[in-house]
Design a protein around this nucleic acid. Sequence first.
DNA 1: TTAACTTATTGACATTGTGTCATATTCTTT
DNA 2: AAAGAATATGACACAATGTCAATAAGTTAA
Lengths: 204, 204
Amino acid sequence: MDNGKVGDKRHLRSIMTRQKLLGVAKEIFLEEGFQAAVISQMIKKANIGYGTAYVHFKGKEDLLIVLMENIMEQFYEIAETSFFPKSKGEAKHTINKQANAFLKMAEAERNMMQVFEQAIGISTVISDKWKAIRMKFIQRISKDVAYAQQNGLARAELNHELVAKGWFFTNEMYLWEIVRNDHQRSIEEIAQTITSVYFEGLYL
Amino acid sequence: MDNGKVGDKRHLRSIMTRQKLLGVAKEIFLEEGFQAAVISQMIKKANIGYGTAYVHFKGKEDLLIVLMENIMEQFYEIAETSFFPKSKGEAKHTINKQANAFLKMAEAERNMMQVFEQAIGISTVISDKWKAIRMKFIQRISKDVAYAQQNGLARAELNHELVAKGWFFTNEMYLWEIVRNDHQRSIEEIAQTITSVYFEGLYL
DNA sequence: TTAACTTATTGACATTGTGTCATATTCTTT
DNA sequence: AAAGAATATGACACAATGTCAATAAGTTAA
């Protein structure tokens, strides 16, 4: 008597249909990109009736959002680790580590992130999802900067939110560059360089 | 006997048709955004035959590119002013001024820039145009950084191209934030804050 | 076991938008 | 004024989307 109703055959089939479509959608998004991906193509490849797709998902956007959930989760995890450095050295080390982790995401999930980047430009819903992630990061960094300022580690005359945004923006743009595979240098070197400028510019 | 053929009536009418369409296109892009703007609507409002639009422009993209030419020109101008600072003070002042000018563009042309931002996400051609502008900026900044390093004004251990990109990225993201009218602080304060962190982080 | 009910699937259809092309119009040249 | 050239036109073919009434498949309960 499974509460999730998974025992019954009907519901099971429904789930399989959904999964089949999701799987094919991922393939096609990766092949074609968000823009060019076409729902009817997915439907055909998944071997389901046309209308069926719309029973399970509202449309292309909806499909991608589900496919992105995993990746977005990971971003939230990185964003959530705030830190309270006791020394300059500790701060620098942690900042560098976080920048590195952030940029590594781009590399690890490059293909889906490429699709995601396109989709951000096109779909309001998806763009909002990314904005939420961005906000999370900025808030966390902002808090970190304020903490460092209060403890005499960082230049107090700077507005911590503006600083936080500026720092995140550099990271984000490098993220997309890595996603596009446009970067010439290793992720480590990128992380180290931007961390160095940011750190020397902000910390005392 | 004007070489540009502007003397003849036929060609003149053609030009007027083109202008009429461009004018209407601008209106509609501003009202609807790039995504939602619809060519047939423009054609209707411009009171021209459907096919006529396609005689003058290849499509929506093409129309927007022409409308953006003026703005893109201005960006190139900002990007082109390289500088060779003799002192730390001069460098800081110039950097701040340039950041300011860049961000002011966002404000001055906010409406068309909003359309542009959307279009970058959607159209490859337009995205490429923006990439070219970005590259121009990065090259110029890169050169400036290298110069400052060679003259003992800036930390020489940093890769100048990575630094230049990071700095431009911060500027660019703030540009879009201002375009979206999402910024809380004045442009001057933003420019000053990011310049300060960048400057103290890079210069000796 | 079967009739009534619930859930899932289906594809034809209406809708919206695009770009093309043969044809018509307007102007220029000879 | 006839031939020729440049412009303009809208009907048409195409591509993709999302909806919905009809159907199929599975479950329940007498």
